[in-house]
Design a protein around this nucleic acid. Structure first.
Ligand SMILES: [Zn+2]
Ligand SMILES: [Zn+2]
Ligand SMILES: [Zn+2]
Ligand SMILES: [Zn+2]
Lengths: 139, 139
DNA sequence: GCGACATTTGAGACTGAGTATCAGGAAGGG
DNA sequence: CCCTTCCTGATACTCAGTCTCAAATGTCGC
């Protein structure tokens, strides 16, 4: 359950354990805060890791459910942020001041969303919830 | 309250009523479905209206609260869609098959979101909800 | 109507995130 | 080791959105 080491992640996903991938995974998992692709690209470029590899690896991890990709608050809504995250859910509280992100564990919210969709004749396949505001420390 | 005519919108916003602006506003307001910036740019280019003007005008309208900008389902999450929309709310049901978007009027959902945020020590400033799925016609 | 003036416009160059390509390089099974 | 397969990074590319600036246009007082 740990997935703390990069190799463990790669092992679990049946991907070759290359040094580039390990570096990307370590870089992103070592952060408790979400990181932008840009920052990762810049940081890893110094170690000779190419832009494409960073994006490819992040993509793999998002698709495998290890990371979650959320909308950052950097310069409008442009760039994505990546963070370690439970795969099935995309519910976040984002602090506008310090950028801290907390996951919401709200099954009741999920149920409510599904019922709202059903009420409109939709079959819900996925949903995303993002609440922006101020965290306790930043009030 | 109508804001049905482009000139009325411009008048209300204290902006010069130019033919380019009227065309952009008419184009976007005549749709009940959200439109991508790309499509508007393409369509209006045929009338000699430049890319920059389209973006500028959409921006003005979003900031003035006449339009709402939502994340489309076109090729990942790349491009924005614009639609006439109550400014304070961003709750949408998006059909993955036909692209239809319905607005959710869910004050109860709002209240629930606020209370979730409060439960985490956050003061909620805004929130966004997007449910993706299949609409009645596309099941 | 007309002219002065500020605002707006559109062509085109630019930015920056993300993608496609592909020859060379590394991983891993035998 | 060796061979096959998968991975990598350099590079070029795409494409949404922004910036710039000279030319065009709306507004308003006359
Ligand atoms: Zn959920
Ligand atoms: Zn904070
Ligand atoms: Zn709401
Ligand atoms: Zn549909």
């Amino acid at each position: 359950m740990s997935l703390r080491s990069a190799s463990a992640v790669l092992d679990r996903l049946d991907l070759r354990s290359t040094s580039a991938r390990r570096a990307v995974i370590t870089a992103v998992l070592s952060r408790s805060q979400p990181v932008t692709a840009r920052e990762l690209v810049a940081r890893l470029a110094r170690r000779g890791i190419g832009r494409a590899t960073v994006f490819r690896t992040l993509d793999l991890l998002v698709r495998a459910g290890v990371l979650s990709r959320i909308h950052g608050i950097e310069g409008g809504e442009r760039c994505f942020h990546y963070t370690r995250c439970a795969p099935e859910h995309h519910h976040h509280l984002v602090c506008r001041a310090c950028g801290k992100v907390e996951e919401i564990d709200a099954r009741r919210l999920d149920a409510r969303l599904d019922s709202v969709a059903r009420g409109h004749g939709f079959r819900a396949l996925s949903h995303a919830v993002e609440i922006q505001g101020l965290c306790q420390d930043c009030h």
